[in-house]
Design a protein around this nucleic acid. Structure first.
Lengths: 253, 253
DNA sequence: TAAATCTGTCCGATAATACCGGATGGGCAG
DNA sequence: CTGCCCATCCGGTATTATCGGACAGATTTA
């Protein structure tokens, strides 16, 4: 990972600070962005106008919001990804079979990216959306991915992004995490017991090719349904089987 | 629309030229970007490194590609849009009912943005993806939207983006387009007879609220299935009914 | 209703940097 | 093994991003 202390084009960094601020504020004017980022009002306005002319943000009567052009760039990027194209129909089937949420995640820049999700008939409302990025250690899919990274790479990720906790169940100790990753490798799948969202449980399996981890898939549902035999073996069986189908399709197509 | 000749932060514009070049080239190194954009190699490299540090592009052994972080920004933007949340279940139902592709489009910066699509059981493979942007006049949904814009706004959009043709059926004459828009207003829906994709036909209806057009929905399918009674009245009925449900839900929720 | 305050937008001076030429080392082709 | 191309790096300088302050409109307060 590159040293982020010497970014070559600082103006682009400021523009993206503005984009991130818009995402955090939902919609805002130049004064609000200025206050939020601690930059002068006219600087904020310069960047907003630039982003608007690039069609990246929308100005509605002096209020700005994030535009859909990001979806264009991101949607295209995703569409080019082989794992996405191969996994999508299988994720849908998995959602149908289990009735729950089924997801696909990849790692990028040391973060977990929700690339695709399908909803089964009983799926509860979740906060995730395509593109949603999380700390890897906070999700079963993320841990399934980390479990197959070299330890050096895992440590670099933890150094770069830290280990914030999001519920009281989130693992916050590096050694505990490494022990858990070893267990995941041994049993072949990962579990999330309310570690990212209180009340939600998850089973995830890595997508492997030649010992390289390409991503992970999962099924998630409320703790009330994800327990007992279903959570212990039924759901893991579905997930592992689907992961294997995806692995085979990644190799032979 | 703002004057695009005086962009306040030119470095951000160059960065986005690089992002657009990456999308066009799929993946590229600094030299290829340099050739493509006509800028010095070290300038291209400066911007690529900046975008990489912002986690917007991925460097794989000196080859760069668009990252999924754009999906994060765009996915979040979309998730905040009321019309998306209200329309999504209805678009799904429409796809189930008709067996074809069903789509939702909004206008942004004078372009049509495919915000959501659902695939019915018989849906053919299409080139669209969430976030895909098109010239409004090239699609039925786009024409349904333009039909409910003031003429001045329509002319401004045509001035800004032009009227390129994408198939031999695409309307390329402004007066013809305005005649067609008047007809769309009178019959309440629009048709696309192979105007954007050869072999594909489409029926679209606007989503209106207090005479303001919020977006449009459509059903599209191959010309072989989209003909006769089905194309003349059955599919239009489905589309208009769904549009009306969305309009009601936009008003009362 | 009027005054005060806040905000969006604009513009020009200057401090800061984006631009980019050229160097270096690695990979690949012949 | 040699030549060519590419990725990456770095420092000088031409260019611009930054930002203070002005102005007009909108909103809030008295």
């Amino acid at each position: 990972m590159t040293d982020s202390t010497t970014i070559p084009v600082k103006a682009t960094r400021v523009s993206f600070d503005v984009v991130e601020a818009l995402q955090e504020l939902d919609e805002a004017g130049a004064a609000e962005i200025s206050n939020h980022l601690g930059i002068p009002k006219s600087t904020a306005h310069d960047h907003l106008r630039t982003l608007e002319q690039l069609e990246l943000v929308v100005n509605e009567n002096g209020r700005y919001r994030t535009g859909t052009r990001f979806l264009d760039f991101g949607g295209y990027a995703r569409q080019q990804m082989k794992i996405y194209n191969v996994a999508r129909p299988e994720i849908r089937k998995l959602a149908e079979q289990t009735g729950e949420h089924s997801n696909l995640m990849v790692e990028e820049h040391g973060r977990g990216v929700f690339l695709y999700k399908a909803e089964g008939t009983n799926a509860v409302q979740l906060d995730t959306y395509n593109g949603y990025r999380v700390h890897l250690h906070t999700t079963a899919m993320g841990k399934a991915i980390l479990a197959h990274f070299p330890e050096k790479r895992v440590r670099a990720i933890l150094d770069r992004h830290g280990m914030p906790t999001v519920t009281e169940h989130t693992v916050d100790n590096e050694e505990e995490l490494f022990e858990e990753l070893a267990q995941i490798r041994s049993q072949g799948f990962a579990r999330d017991l309310e570690e990212r969202v209180r009340g939600m449980r998850c089973v995830a399996a890595p997508i492997l090719r030649d010992d390289e981890v390409l991503g992970a898939i999962s099924v998630s549902g409320p703790a009330s349904r994800m327990q007992g035999e279903r959570f212990e073996s039924e759901i893991p069986d579905h997930v592992l089987r689907t992961a294997n189908v995806i692995e085979v399709n990644m190799t032979y197509s």
